[in-house]
Amino acid sequence: MYKPGEKSPVILDGDPGHDDAIAWLIARASMMTDKALDIKAVTAVGGNVSLDKTAYNAMRVLTLLGMTEVPLAKGAEHPLMRELMSAPSVHGESGLDGPVLPEPELSLSSLTAVELMAKVLRESDEGVTIVSTGPLTNTAALLLAHPELKEKIRRISLMGGGVSHGNWTPAAEFNILVDPEAADIVFKSGVPILMSGLDVTEKALVLKDDVERIRAIGSKVGDIVWKWLEFFYQYHKKIGYEGAPMHDPCAVMALLHPEIFTVRDYHVEIETAGKYCQGATVADVRDIKKQEPNASVVLGLDREKFVDYLVEAVAAYR
């Protein structure tokens, strides 16, 4: 189901967040170099921190990356049918604590996230890939509001879930846990899904030496990424990781460099009820229920090559 290495227009949907910002940086770098991805729009969603903060962070990140021409829209403030649960402990109060970022040199679109996504899909001659690195609220809202545009979505590449375990609860990963109903809509939509869950993202570690490689690039963008990684590295070291897990960048990297990832097709469903398991991505690894796979699930990677590509992407900014 997952056809690697294809060129595609993309919509970036996320809740930046350090690792969203790095995911976007990689996507933008590809646009500047081999043009594998063509970023048509960016949409912000409430998640790691509130929507106001993620939208402001998105504006600052696009400004930093020289993407002021890309339309940016605000989407959902809160999950489809729940209160927002955020993660300031991971990303700091602003959602993007650390180095000082340029003030925004672009303004928000007058369209909502769903309107902007729909416009991009409508105007595109080819299928568009949605890269979703936050809760899936915006993407689910698009699917609910515009069933007629589903065919125009080539793939949803998302960071979320985990086959073997969770992080925010023992059973659930943060992005899916925040809005399980939205995730359920996305996984049931029939749109091909490329799922980068904790199975791979916790192995996509940036180690101390790798942080130094980024530092050595010595550019304006490189210095900021270095400080983000340092911030992320320190937080994760405190909770027992040997490096900083590059959760969200996997969702972009798996599109650009599929050959360095291990991928399996499974039928995946989302637990929306339960005492302990809300937000769990239940993958039928043994095909017990005999259902067609709906997701290509990324399970592993060549970490060193991943870091090489990351360094290369950061070095593309001079």
């Binding site: 989302i270 637990e271 005492k275 302990y276 769990a280 239940v282």
Partner: peptide
């Protein structure tokens, strides 16, 4: 820590 899901739809 081990607990058992008793309210899940899939779990």
């Amino acid at each position: 820590g081990v607990y058992v899901e008793t309210k899940g739809r899939l779990t």
